[in-house]
């Protein structure tokens, strides 16, 4: 049983197809980059994976649970970092995490134990009592990741989580998430920045709603670079690494 399986998924905005027969699977402990230019369908796919939107065409299975038939069991195994900030700026780091833990049905000691664990894991323990408004962009993104991990999901989705961050912070966050995958977490990381992808990572290239290629970054790059391969497949210039 794969932690995340997407089979024959299609979605339309009116008459316009946003996703066309998309299928892929992620294995346990793998970091998979969903690579695509703007407008490729990444956000639409994420909205479908998180059940913000539903479609009758195709099937999504998370940790063995069909998202359309058992949405609650499936969502319980999913951690999501959205592009937009979800934190309350006027609440402290711990208060925000406690709120999210409650939305997962966690409270009391078990919630506090998990909050402490994710703060340690993201090196945010010393910021626990600070208001989110005082945190810099990098720490806020780390907090978003901590929030998404609090219920110990099997699958972590991140929708362009490094947008707006400087290169050092981007690298730090990318490394953190790669470490999570190395520890057994299954990660789907949507991006259009190829320098966030390591050679051994899985890559799904999405363009105009279709999957163009799916393999490891090293295999897709072949004898050239991943940027060149991506450009060839999408006929677009990817954003260069900073």
């Amino acid at each position: 049983m794969q932690p995340l399986s997407v089979q024959n998924l299609s979605y339309h905005y009116g008459a316009k197809a946003a996703l066309k027969d998309v299928s892929f699977e992620l294995s346990t402990g793998r970091f998979c980059a969903l690579l695509g230019p703007n407008g490729a369908g990444k956000s639409t796919l994420f909205s479908l994976l998180t059940r913000l939107f539903v479609t009758k065409q195709g099937q999504i299975t998370i940790a063995g649970h069909d998202l359309s038939r058992k949405p609650r069991a499936a969502l319980a195994q999913l951690g999501v970092v959205f592009q937009q900030q979800t934190l309350d700026l006027d609440m402290s780091v711990t208060q925000n995490l406690r709120y999210f833990a409650a939305l997962q049905g966690l409270s009391g000691r078990s919630a506090q134990h998990r909050i402490d664990a994710v703060l340690d894991r993201l090196s945010m323990r010393e910021r626990a009592t600070e208001k989110v408004r005082r945190l810099n962009g990098g720490h806020r993104r780390r907090m978003e990741i901590a929030r998404a991990l609090i219920h110990e999901p099997q699958v972590l989705l991140l929708d362009e989580p490094t947008v707006g961050l400087d290169s050092a912070t981007r690298k730090s966050i990318t490394d953190h998430v790669h470490d999570l995958a190395a520890d057994g977490m299954t990660v789907l990381w949507a991006t259009h920045l190829v320098d966030e992808i390591h050679p051994k990572d899985d890559v799904v290239i999405l363009h105009q709603g279709k999957i163009r290629k799916q393999d490891t970054a090293r295999a897709i790059a072949g004898s050239g670079t991943l940027i060149d391969a991506f450009m060839d497949m999408t006929q677009q210039t990817p954003e260069p690494s900073l």
């Binding site: 913000l52 969502l75 997962q104």
Partner: peptide, 19 residues
């Protein structure tokens, strides 16, 4: 909904009607 925090509610495993 525009800022994102509504998504936390909508992607929670608890029933949407309850939240």
């Amino acid at each position: 909904r525009e800022m994102g925090s509504m998504r936390l509610l909508l992607t929670s495993p608890l029933p949407r009607w309850w939240l």
